[in-house]
């Protein structure tokens, strides 16, 4: 009987801990994840903030770059190129909501990479951009 109660307590704690762990994703988690994914095909890969900045601020065959809407300063507010609506800063130091949820990060990479590149972004590209955004001061 006692043992049974202990198991329930343990299971409950594990569920709680799992929930908390999933809720609290950090920018470093995304950097590690995309870097690891990139290493599947390029074992020596290491994310570069410098490459990330270049990727973010240049066009890739289309009309827009990432910075068309987000500006070249990740700590600044951007403005949607079509609608004019304000876009909150991309740098986690300036906006704690950034790089905090897989659902949101994957949704926006998915949409915006298609808008800017006409294809999905590679894990290496995502790792570089995340590294650059994390480097940005407030």
């Amino acid at each position: 009987m006692k043992r049974h109660t202990l198991w329930i307590l343990l299971a409950g704690t594990a569920v709680l801990a799992g929930g908390v762990a999933r809720a609290a994703e950090t920018p470093a988690d995304f950097l590690a994840r995309y870097q690891n994914e990139a290493r599947q095909s390029a074992p020596g890969f290491s994310a570069s903030a410098e490459r990330g900045e270049k990727f973010f601020t240049t066009t890739h065959g289309g009309e827009w770059s990432c910075s068309t809407c987000h500006t070249k300063n990740p700590a600044a507010r951007g403005k949607h190129a079509n609608t004019g609506k304000a876009i909150e800063p991309m740098a986690p130091a300036a906006n704690p909501e950034r790089l905090a949820s897989t659902r949101s990060v994957e949704k926006w990479f998915g949409r915006n990479c298609k808008d800017v590149l006409g294809r999905v972004c590679t894990p290496a590209e995502k790792a570089d951009v995340v590294a650059w955004l994390m480097n940005s001061p407030r």
Partner: peptide, 11 residues
């Protein structure tokens, strides 16, 4: 939504 006024807005 994948072609939403020139943007990808997929859900």
């Amino acid at each position: 939504l994948d072609k939403h006024f020139g943007s990808d807005a997929s859900l």
